[in-house]
Design a binder for these strands. Structure first.
Length: 368
RNA sequence: GCGGCGGUGGCGGAGUGGUCAAUCGCACUUGACUGUAAAUCAAGCGCCCCUGUGGCUACGCAGGUUCGAAUCCUGCCCGCCGCA
């Protein structure tokens, strides 16, 4: 018996796309939906009320970060994530798997999970893959890492990740996985994939609470045959839904998603982890994705880039100085109905906090 | 008037005989950002072009010493401080 219910209400005639409703203990999510990322139990720069008002239905927080601070036991005492951060809607937590990548093979190397260029280019072996400064050490059983905050050593395993996520208490949780660099050698991706699969089974076995939905994560990097194998393996396990994770070549994301979604069971929700940008979302929806999360809108907004129908708008640029018009003319968000580009530009120049808030409100409204 | 200190790129401020178009910070210009190590990071920032181990002009002004001066000497101008 799953703690969530997923109902498909409409489907594309010739394709994988669908719209539905995901019912959780903390309310419904009309899918497809975008989950703003609130890593540390806060979507940076916004209050939960503002988040709700701009249309966010669900928030994703992070296991690794909340385990380090304030500690999952504290959140449990507070009554769980939603109560702790005063967000009354559905919540989810990533398993900490992504930090195996971001603090591991990607650490201090300017590597992201998405390789630009084409598939051919990305084939290049990553010679430094195993030997450079990183905060993670991976073995078959789990991961030993050093806190990026104070350097203390910690251990994360599938069992530990699930225990922490049960303490945090989100409605939807994820299995512990190992995303790889898009440039990692195939041999390494195969090893990582078999770990991810073993960890998926252990995550399921470790689960105790029955009021949380556990989603299994499909990996396989940029290799289609590995993706296919992974989708089949994960689909066969009794998860409440699925996450698609890992690394891609930019233009190939849509193909990987289509490939995986043709294999995953139709009646369970599918979450495309950490994606994405505007085009990625349109393509993902078309290929049957129900849920997205991504740091991109909140991060670029804080760094001065607003998203609009007409593309990116860098509010920091000098040209905005005397543009006394809304960031986007026909936008109904709080920022656009009350403030001008000139003002938001001024706030960014002056390093005023309100600038980050107004930029985030607009860009997240646009994305959601 | 005398004495002391000081005048360097938009600003602050290094440098005190050669490797100086000149450390660094700020400001400015532009770019990046995809399960947040991120209110972060990167590049540029005298002028010119064939964009380079390229050319030219620069360290208050004018002279001088030296193979070579932002750096030493002389005079002048300006600022601050002290004494008259």
């Amino acid at each position: 018996m799953s703690s969530i219910r997923f109902t498909i209400e409409k489907k594309l005639e010739n394709g994988l796309g669908r719209a539905g409703v995901l019912t959780t203990p903390h309310g419904n999510v009309e899918t497809p939906a975008f989950a703003p990322v609130g890593t540390l139990a806060t979507v940076k720069a916004l209050s939960p009320e503002e988040l709700w008002e701009l249309g966010a239905q669900v928030v994703l927080a992070n296991t690794y970060h909340l385990y380090l601070q304030p500690g999952d036991a504290t959140i449990a005492k507070a009554g769980g994530l939603g109560k702790f951060m005063n967000f009354h809607g559905p919540t989810m937590t990533d398993s900490g798997g992504f930090q195996v990548f971001s603090l591991g093979s990607a650490y201090k190397r300017g590597v992201t999970k998405i390789a630009k260029g084409d598939a051919e280019e990305a084939q290049g072996n990553d010679e430094h893959h195993t030997e450079h400064t990183q905060l993670m050490r991976i073995d078959e059983d789990g991961v030993t890492f050093r806190s990026h905050i104070d350097g203390t050593e910690h251990r994360l395993t599938p069992e530990k990740s699930i225990a922490i996520q049960e303490n945090i208490g989100a409605d939807i949780i994820f299995s512990f996985d190992e995303p790889t660099s898009p440039r990692a050698p195939r041999v390494y991706m195969e090893q990582a994939l078999s770990r991810t699969h073993a960890w998926a089974e252990r995550s399921l076995a470790a689960k105790k609470r029955n009021d949380q939905a556990l989603l299994g994560i499909v990996q396989g990097g940029r290799y289609h045959d590995l993706r296919e194998h992974s989708a089949q393996f994960i689909a066969a396990l009794p998860f409440d839904g699925f996450g698609i994770g890992g690394s891609y070549v930019k233009d190939d994301i849509v193909n990987v998603v289509a490939l995986v979604n043709r294999i995953l069971p139709e009646d369970k929700p599918r979450h495309l982890l950490g994606i994405g940008e505007v085009e990625d979302i349109f393509e993902g929806i078309e290929q049957g994705i129900d849920l997205f999360d991504c740091v991109q809108p909140t991060r670029i907004a804080r760094n001065g880039t607003l998203l609009t129908k007409h593309g990116r708008h860098d509010i920091f640029n000098a040209g905005n100085k005397e543009l006394f018009e809304p960031p986007e003319w026909d936008c109904a968000c709080y920022t656009c109905t009350h403030y001008t580009k000139a003002y938001v530009h001024h706030l960014f120049r002056a390093k005023e906090i309100l600038g980050h808030r107004l930029a985030t409100i607009h860009t997240l409204f646009f994305r959601v």
